[in-house]
Simulated assay, not measured.
Amino acid sequence: MNCARGNAPGLATGLALLWVGLLALAVAPTASVASEPMLGAFGPEGARMREQLWILPSGDANFPMRATVFRPAIDPSGEDKQRPLVVINHGTDETTRLAVSMPVYYYLSRWFVDRGYVVVLPQRRGHGATGGPLAEAIGNCAHPDHYASGNVAADDIEAAVKFMTEQPFVSHDGAIVVGVSTGGWASLALSARNLPQVQAIVNFAGGRGGHAYGQLNAICGRDALLSAARVYATHAQEPTIWFYARNDSYFGPKFAEDLAQTWSSAGGSVEEHILQPYGNDGHAIADDRQGWDIWGPSLDSFLQRVREAAPKSVEMADDHGSRSPVMIETSTITPSVK
């Protein structure tokens, strides 16, 4: 009896290790039995907005990205029709980047899913389950290369956009690219590429190099960041909308306004909203349900105008109407949408 009880955990452990090994083989960056990684859906859909793990290509074929996909409910008729895509791109914390879980941004994702979008949240190279080197961190705080760093991150986003818009349940155009913090900066870098699949860019508190040397409202290479933005904007033709809070400790209102002025003067389209102080740190404006009432009406209006200005061949999601914001918004630059 004691012997049997002693052997059972060993057997269970062996089976668990076998399953772990099979899973690792299935999603390994470079499979030993094939030249290409296994891409696409991995595992069943969950109950929460049809949540599912996906494996996506990145900017480097050796490091496929892990991603979370959320989808609207199947139509009452039983048809799982094509939906426009939203790609939500996460920020970066150097001290925790390898320990972070899969990006979800539940309330931001749900805002779009409720409006009929398929949402994908890729985990870029150098973060969490995707792992690998942090390819998008080029230079150091004293000598950062914000332009090249943004482009490397944009390579990952571009790969995700192209792969997902080829899926049968996703529209081939009309995609919206959304970014938070460094993900916002990467989304602005992507806008310079004018991908035919992408219709607009949404930037929440975007930038790079915040909290320089551990100090609030200090930015590594502030002038270099503005210079890089100028180059991106010179090429960007897509409409963009930006949200920053007055109490953002990474990228405060003065920097946000300077960045928007730089972007606009270089020919980029920008509608910027400086929001009133939000929570303990306004850098988290995209993180919870309250954000729907703060930035939601402006984003609804922006997306409606974008659709009217650049109609696509596929059916777009319907708006749910504007809600009264609970905080005052101040728009610093609001040119007509391109």
Score class of each variant (00 low, 15 high):
residue 30 T to W: 05
residue 65 M to W: 07
residue 307 R to Y: 15
residue 283 H to P: 11
residue 187 S to E: 11
residue 76 P to N: 08
residue 316 M to E: 09
residue 246 R to V: 02
residue 52 Q to R: 01
residue 147 Y to A: 04
residue 116 G to N: 02
residue 306 V to T: 13
residue 321 G to E: 00
residue 49 M to I: 00
residue 180 V to E: 13
residue 212 A to G: 12
residue 112 F to K: 01
residue 145 D to F: 09
residue 35 S to M: 08
residue 28 A to V: 01
residue 98 L to T: 07
residue 9 P to V: 03
residue 62 N to A: 13
residue 85 L to D: 07
residue 151 N to P: 14
residue 45 E to D: 09
residue 274 I to C: 11
residue 299 L to C: 13
residue 190 L to Q: 04
residue 210 G to L: 15
residue 50 R to V: 00
residue 207 G to M: 10
residue 133 P to H: 14
residue 274 I to V: 11
residue 324 S to C: 07
residue 157 I to G: 00
residue 272 E to I: 13
residue 153 A to D: 05
residue 209 G to V: 10
residue 328 I to F: 10
residue 91 G to M: 04
residue 329 E to Q: 13
residue 222 R to K: 08
residue 301 S to V: 07
residue 16 A to Q: 07
residue 76 P to L: 10
residue 109 S to E: 03
residue 288 D to Y: 11
residue 255 F to G: 03
residue 309 A to H: 11
residue 127 H to S: 14
residue 307 R to P: 06
residue 44 P to Y: 07
residue 250 Y to D: 05
residue 144 P to G: 04
residue 257 E to Y: 15
residue 315 E to C: 06
residue 332 T to M: 04
residue 309 A to E: 12
residue 154 A to H: 02
residue 236 A to P: 08
residue 287 D to Y: 10
residue 27 V to A: 06
residue 99 A to N: 10
residue 94 E to G: 06
residue 254 K to P: 12
residue 1 M to K: 14
residue 204 F to T: 04
residue 249 S to G: 10
residue 332 T to L: 02
residue 39 L to R: 01
residue 44 P to D: 05
residue 145 D to K: 03
residue 81 K to N: 15
residue 268 G to I: 08
residue 257 E to H: 13
residue 114 D to R: 03
residue 248 D to I: 11
residue 178 V to E: 03
residue 218 A to G: 07
residue 252 G to L: 04
residue 237 Q to G: 13
residue 208 R to D: 11
residue 104 V to F: 11
residue 212 A to E: 14
residue 29 P to S: 12
residue 180 V to H: 14
residue 335 P to K: 00
residue 242 W to E: 07
residue 48 R to S: 03
residue 297 P to W: 09
residue 88 I to W: 06
residue 183 G to S: 13
residue 120 V to T: 00
residue 122 P to L: 02
residue 39 L to W: 10
residue 224 A to R: 01
residue 318 D to H: 03
residue 232 Y to C: 04
residue 213 Y to K: 07
residue 15 L to C: 04
residue 206 G to C: 11
residue 230 R to V: 15
residue 30 T to S: 07
residue 61 A to V: 09
residue 162 K to I: 06
residue 324 S to T: 12
residue 176 I to D: 09
residue 116 G to P: 06
residue 19 W to R: 06
residue 64 P to D: 03
residue 291 G to T: 05
residue 53 L to A: 01
residue 58 S to E: 06
residue 184 G to D: 15
residue 123 Q to L: 05
residue 313 S to R: 08
residue 205 A to C: 14
residue 53 L to Q: 00
residue 288 D to L: 05
residue 61 A to E: 10
residue 121 L to Y: 02
residue 173 D to P: 13
